[in-house]
Structures are given as structure tokens and as C-alpha cells.
Amino acid sequence: MNVNRSRLFDIANAALIGFISLLCLVPMLLVLMVSFTSEASIQQNGYQLLPSEFSLDAYKLLLGTSPLYRSYLVSLFVTIVGTLIAVLITGMAGYTLAAKHIRYRNGLAMFFFITMVFNTGLVPWYLINLELGLRNNIWALIVPSLIFNPFNLFLVRNYMSQIPGSLIEAAKIDGANDIFIAFRIYFPLCMPVLATITLFYGIGYWNNWFNAIMLVDNQNLYPLQYLLFKLNSEINMIQQMQSSGVLVSDAVLPQESVKMATAILTIGPVIFFYPFLQRYFIKGLLIGSLKE
């Protein structure tokens, strides 16, 4: 009887989770279908799961823009390189603050906490970037966001603080230094939290367009988000000029479908990012559960 009840509960639970998952797919499906809808149909009928008139105008406009492919490569490079370096810096800083044998670690933690609470503002940030030579080069898209986020730092520090200090003592008795302890002991045990901040940094770099606005004038260095942001702004400006009579033209630009197509084109790498990191969550949990 208990086995039947347990099986019935598992079936009901799986059905409920499956239903909720399908509901979560509806908004994504709606965005996808609207991106293939003509602008005239959107203006007349609004957003529809089954468009009355299909159109590829939005994708022709976006994919026909020659810098789009170059911007994709720029965004991929910035995201991969920036995320790897940022996770490395944050992980090492977290180990420094978590290891009890490090002197002045509490003072360092307070220093980082102050930077999380108080912000110097935009003008000092811009001037420092100029002094560092971060202007119209690829590092202008990486370095300003590279200095680790204090929130991510404290996530790593708090997770590492739960690791028994006896591991460090045993490793030091065997002659290991801090670099070896951090990379061969702490980092493998902290895979769940490192995967979490990797996701945070990766999404942050992928969606970042502010650095390009402030520090980049070279069109060859425009990241994907900034290029699409400029394209959408230009479409909005043209439509406002048409509606006000400043610009006389019968052409109907696919404003709404371009927005949805932009979402589809930019969300792709992020969707593949989640399942890639999921196995590291599981692997980290398994490693952390082993005891000798």
C-alpha cells in the first residue's frame, strides 16, 4: 500500500512539474512567434501564438546587418575571457578571506564590504578607465567589469568558511602551499558556488552594453547587445519621424518583431549556458559529500 501511495505521489508530482514547465515555455514561445509576425499583423491583432501573417522582415533586418556577426564574436570573447578571469580573482579572494591562517582577513573583508555599500559615482569610474588606457580597445569591455563583485566574493567566502580547517592543516603538514590548497582542495569542494558566480559573471558580461557606450567608439568593437540597442533606437527614431511628418515614407519598419527577434538572438548562448553549468552543480555536491 505504501509503495502504491509513493508511486502515485511521484506520478502526481511529475505531472505537476511538467505542467508548470510547459507554462514557463509559453512566454518564450510567444516571443518566438511574434518575431516571425509581420508588423502590420502585430499592429492590427497584437501578439498572437499563431500569427495571421508570417514574416521574416525582422530577421532579414538584423541578420542583414554586416557588423552583427562580428559583434557576436566580440561578445563571446568578452564573456568567456572576462568570466574566467573574474571567477579566478573572486575564488582566490574568497579563499584569502576564508582561510583562518591569513592575517588581517577580517580587515580585508570590511574593506570589500565598504565598496559594496558606497559607490564613488560615474565620473571617477570614467576617469580611472581613461588613466588605465581602457578606451577603444577590447579590454575596455572586460576590465571595468572584471574587478569582482563584492556580493559574489562574500558568497564564495561564506561557502569556503564551511570547509573544515583541518584540511588546510593536513595539507600543510604534507608540504602544500596556499596555491596548491586553493586549486586542488578548496576549488573542487566549492564547485556549486563557483558555478553560481560563473553564471552571474557570464550573464553580466553577455548583457553588458554600458561599457561600450562609455568607452568604445570603434564600430569593430561593438558588442552584440550594444549593436542591437543602437539598431532598435534608430528604428524607433525613424518611426517617430514618420508619425510626426518629418520623414515621408510608406515603408513600415518591423519595430515590435525586431524587439522579439533581438530577444531570440541574444538569449541563445545564455540558454546553453545553464545546462552546461548544471553538471558542475551536481559534481560539486557529490565531491562535497564524500568523506574519507
Rank of each mutant, 00 (worst) to 15 (best):
M1N: 06
N2C: 04
V3F: 14
L8M: 04
L8C: 02
N13I: 02
N13R: 09
A14T: 12
A15E: 07
C24R: 00
L25F: 08
P27L: 13
P27T: 10
P27E: 12
M28Y: 15
L29V: 10
L30G: 01
M33Y: 10
M33K: 06
F36Y: 02
S38A: 05
S38C: 05
Q48W: 08
Q48P: 07
L49K: 01
L49P: 01
L50D: 03
S52T: 05
S52C: 00
F54S: 03
Y59N: 05
L61I: 00
P67F: 10
P67N: 07
L68E: 11
Y69L: 14
S75K: 08
L76D: 06
V78Q: 06
I80C: 11
I85W: 08
A86S: 15
V87P: 06
T90C: 15
T90V: 09
A93R: 01
G94A: 06
T96M: 10
A98T: 04
R103F: 15
G107P: 03
F111C: 06
F113C: 04
F118Q: 08
F118P: 11
T120G: 10
T120P: 13
G121A: 10
G121P: 12
I128C: 00
E131D: 14
N137D: 08
W139Y: 13
I142M: 05
V143D: 10
V143R: 04
S145M: 12
S145I: 06
N149A: 06
F151T: 07
N152R: 02
V156W: 14
Y159L: 01
Q162Y: 12
L167T: 04
I173N: 07
N177H: 12
D178M: 06
F180Y: 14
F180P: 01
A182R: 00
Y186N: 00
F187A: 04
F187R: 03
C190N: 01
V193K: 00
L199C: 12
F200Q: 10
F200C: 08
Y205H: 06
N207W: 08
W209R: 02
N211H: 10
A212N: 02
I213W: 13
M214G: 03
L215Y: 15
L221F: 05
Y222T: 04
L224Q: 09
L227Q: 11
F229S: 07
M237R: 14
Q239G: 11
Q240T: 14
M241F: 09
S243I: 09
S244N: 14
G245E: 11
V246G: 01
V246R: 08
V248Q: 12
S249R: 02
D250W: 09
Q255I: 04
K259Q: 07
I267Q: 05
V270S: 02
L277H: 07
Y280C: 09
F281G: 01
K283A: 12
I287K: 02
S289A: 14
L290H: 13
E292H: 09
